[in-house]
Design a protein around this nucleic acid. Structure first.
Length: 585
RNA sequence: GGGCGCGUAGCAUAGCCUGGAUAAUGCACCGGCCUCCUAAGCCGGGGACCGCGGGUUCGAAUCCUGCCGCGUCCGCCA
């Protein structure tokens, strides 16, 4: 297990010696190095080697073996780590001096140890709001998680295509366009531009459910839209543009990277849909089912236990979302040259994506060199344990949540730090309020459902982004008060003497490993957990190890190094999560 | 009915992929700490049959299996 703390650099430094020591005690043949892992009990050390599985091979007790290995290993790790044996475990603890040297390396490294990887090309499909529908808290997850993954990939040196697969096509648009006409184009555009998407959609839906004439008009309008009627397309464009204007406002508030350049709505893949059908037909994969063209793949079955197909083209000639998703794959592989196809989409679509990926592979739209991942996330539930849907009318608008978060943050700053003027206060309130909302979503394991809790989203205490930002701001405050400029001298002397210094130093040295762990599993929450542990270690250090009033200049400089690295680790880490790090709060 | 996922202190979560020592964190609760670098904080404390039962293993929250509960998906919506 590689939890919140995994001292990868120590593992790399000692691995060969450990393997050697194990074989020296007689366990030859296999490579037993894999037994080496993070110590689960912090007091025992940084790394541990459990010797129990060697016992049957060596015919000795684990305690005995651990002691043998320990005494062989200890001399070879002088200057790196201390070795001890406790109840069948060999424990390895990095020397303070060795860690100090690692810190000095980080001090002069802008990337804080995070390596640039061989560059891949990735498409990250995320956010994907629906035109003329309100963005509610359910959209937050995809947008925020996707954005964090994009930032991590970019930091690691990959080329990333952000793909905002906006719902801008399909049968509802007949209804929406007719409603637009009923309201009067100008009025409707105003309403949409004001961000009252919910009202607009619900009114349209209500008419559709009660007015047969309206239903008829809507149907006709869909036909005109799909037939490419000029005026209809123009009206459709109004809906899309007004909605996008509103979405961009929300993106701006949220501080995500998405812009108009990233919009690749469903309508963009229109021209590829016949191509999908043709290619599948040429491969002989298409079968007829009551007039529809479908692909049977895998062993999916429906309610009746019959094989379940992926529908490619409906009997009426229309296309399905599966077809669009296949077209996307063609586009991303062939036009964009992507290696990684990542979809930040809710868990309910898991089966759909499995089927789509399967068909795409079979059809040769992609091959073994392509990595697909459905980065699924759980649903936001209401207090009854039911999935939260905008249609139900109870869902909280995302903008309202964000505004509330900012105004609460504004109030807290006014209470705690009245010296900050109101412009600056507003700017900081946005960083803190928005950060808190994003962090609340990012910090929990993404596949789990959770019940929406207003207070949870708006909390500024405990494992929240304000806690991390607070640590950062305190450090900035220390530097403001000191007469030492950053960046600090590269040859600064570092000495780790107190327990609080040692704990903080250990955390700092693990940053790059934790970033890699977080990205490799597409799990931003791991980075959150790690950053919280850094901030927490800093808070203890801050209380117990005075910096500016240290006993001597060397101690002060050493502590300033810890402060500097902590601040940079926090701001870099928060930056990957799309959260700002104000210098005061 | 079948597929997938989830179940860890009062609440909310991490740990599960890759098995290891006393199950970690936050909120809430109890007790301490601001003449001292920002108390959005720190220090200490209580609180858990890791859903239930089997199995594998020297060792299981973690792997396998059965059951229970909840969620979600299951052909022309996306």
């Amino acid at each position: 297990m590689h939890g919140a703390d995994w001292m990868r650099i120590l593992e790399q430094a000692v691995k060969d010696k450990v393997t050697q020591a194990v074989s020296d005690v007689g366990a030859e043949g296999d490579d037993w190095g894999y037994l080496l892992g993070p110590a689960t009990v912090e007091e025992h050390g940084d790394l541990a080697l459990p010797c129990h599985s060697l016992a049957p091979i060596l015919k000795r007790s684990p305690v005995d073996i651990a002691e043998s290995i320990s005494s062989t290993l200890a001399p070879s790790l002088v200057g790196i780590a201390e070795v001890s044996a406790v109840s069948g475990f060999v424990n390895i603890r990095a020397d303070s001096e060795w860690i100090a040297t690692r810190l000095r390396e980080l001090l002069s490294d802008d990337r804080l140890g995070i390596e640039v990887e061989e560059s891949r090309v990735a498409a990250v499909d995320y956010s994907a709001p629906n035109v003329a529908k309100e963005m509610h808290v359910g959209h937050l997850r995809s947008t925020v998680i996707g954005d964090a993954i994009v930032r991590m990939l970019m930091y690691k040196g990959h080329t990333v295509h952000r793909e905002n697969h906006v719902g801008d096509w399909g049968t509802p648009f007949g209804m929406l366009i007719e409603h637009l006409l009923d309201l009067g184009e100008h009025n409707a555009a105003d309403e949409l531009g004001m961000g009252d998407l919910d009202g607009f959609y619900k009114q349209a839906r209500a008419k559709f459910n009660s007015d047969e004439q309206f239903v008829e008009r809507s149907r006709n309008r869909v036909v005109m839209l799909q037939g490419g009627d000029g005026e209809t397309l123009r009206l459709w464009r109004v809906l899309v543009d007004e909605s996008m204007r509103y979405f961009n406002e929300v993106y701006g508030m949220l501080g995500v990277l998405l812009t108009n350049d990233d919009i690749m709505g469903e309508s963009n893949y229109h021209h590829l849909l016949p191509e999908v059908v043709n290619r599948l037909a040429d491969l002989g994969m298409l079968e007829d089912s009551e007039g529809a063209k479908v692909v049977y793949s895998g062993d999916w079955v429906n309610r009746e236990g019959e094989p379940m197909p992926l529908i490619i083209q409906k009997a009426d000639g229309g296309y399905n979302y599966a077809t669009t998703d296949l077209a996307c794959i063609i586009d991303r592989v062939e036009r964009l040259g992507c290696n990684d196809l990542l979809y930040v989409v809710g868990t309910p679509q898991a089966q759909h994506f499995k089927m789509v990926f399967e068909v795409a592979s079979q059809a040769g739209f992609m091959d073994e060199s392509h990595n697909t991942a459905h980065i699924k996330f759980g649903s936001v539930m209401d207090s009854d344990g039911k999935i939260l849907k905008s249609r139900e009318g109870e869902a909280i608008k995302l903008v309202d949540l964000l505004n509330e978060a900012v105004s609460r943050a504004y109030q807290v700053i006014a209470d705690r730090n009245p010296s900050i003027d109101s412009d600056e206060r507003q700017r900081i309130a946005e960083a803190i309020g928005i950060g808190a909302v994003k962090y609340a979503d990012l910090s929990t394991e993404r596949t789990k459902d959770y019940v929406f809790d207003w207070d949870r989203m708006l909390s500024f205490e405990g494992n929240t982004s304000p806690y991390l930002q607070y640590a950062h701001a305190r450090i900035c405050s220390i530097f403001r008060r000191s007469d030492t400029d950053r960046p600090l001298p590269e040859d600064a002397a570092i000495s780790i003497r107190h327990a609080e210094e040692a704990l903080l130093a250990r955390r700092l040295v693990n940053f790059s490993a934790m970033v890699d762990e977080s990205l490799s599993t597409y799990s931003p929450h791991r980075l959150c957990t790690y950053l919280h542990s850094v901030a927490s270690a800093f808070a203890s250090f801050y209380e117990n190890c005075p910096v500016l009033s240290s006993e001597d200049d060397d101690t002060m400089m050493s502590r300033l190094v810890l402060c500097d690295l902590t601040a940079r680790t926090l701001s870099t880490g928060l930056g990957m999560l799309g959260i700002e790090s104000p210098e005061q709060m």
